[in-house]
């Protein structure tokens, strides 16, 4: 081959190399931006999921306050909550059939009802925390609720009453 042809060949190869290097740079740059966008989307969907879980829990017939099936909005019946906690049994996370029923609704999350007035107290209703690793926790979503004590304290002569508290939802996702 002549020298001229060799130079032209090298030129073509150099152009190809530069082209592919630029292409690789472009793909890497694009994938980095996409990765960042996906991260933002995951974080916002995690927050959305926490709101969704809070909403689903708030409207569960098994915790809502009712009078003859008429629902009292934003109110949890403490006796129902206690019964639900008893059946879900957060100590046996993942193995309890009742918890398995709730899993598609609440996924990996922790649901806590906190009473703040007149007395302070808290009740963990559902607690399915992941073993660790790459799991991240959403910012806690809190919803203020009334907590109905249907019995009061009959022995002490205290009539039924409404307490004030909030529902806290933390959702875990990979």
């Amino acid at each position: 081959m002549g020298k001229k042809a060799q130079i032209r060949m090298s030129e073509s190869i150099a152009i190809m190399i530069v082209f592919f290097v630029l292409l690789v740079f472009g793909i890497v740059f694009y994938s980095q931006i996409e990765r960042r966008n996906i991260g933002v989307a995951i974080s916002s969907s995690q927050d959305l999921k926490a709101v969704e879980v809070a909403q689903v829990f708030s409207f569960l017939p098994e915790v809502q306050c009712t009078k003859e099936n008429i629902v009292i909005n934003n109110c949890f019946d403490l006796m129902k909550l206690e019964s639900l906690r008893h059946w879900v049994d957060p100590d046996n996370a993942g193995t309890n059939p009742v918890e398995q029923y709730y899993y598609p609704m609440f996924l990996m999350s922790k649901l806590t009802v906190r009473q703040i007035y007149p007395d302070a107290g808290e009740m963990v209703i559902y607690d399915l925390e992941p073993p660790g690793g790459e799991w991240t926790k959403s910012a806690a979503t809190q919803i203020p609720v009334s907590l109905y004590n249907a019995t009061g304290d009959p022995v002490a002569g205290r009539p039924p009453f409404y307490a004030f508290g909030y529902l806290e939802v933390e959702v875990f996702s990979k």
Binding site: P61, E62, D77, M79, K80, E82, S83, L84, H86, W87, V98, Y101, A150, T151
Partner: peptide
């Protein structure tokens, strides 16, 4: 069954 268990437990407590 689950809802019944909850109302049963509530009735038992009452």
């Amino acid at each position: 069954n689950m809802a019944s268990d909850i109302y049963r437990k509530k009735s038992e407590s009452l």
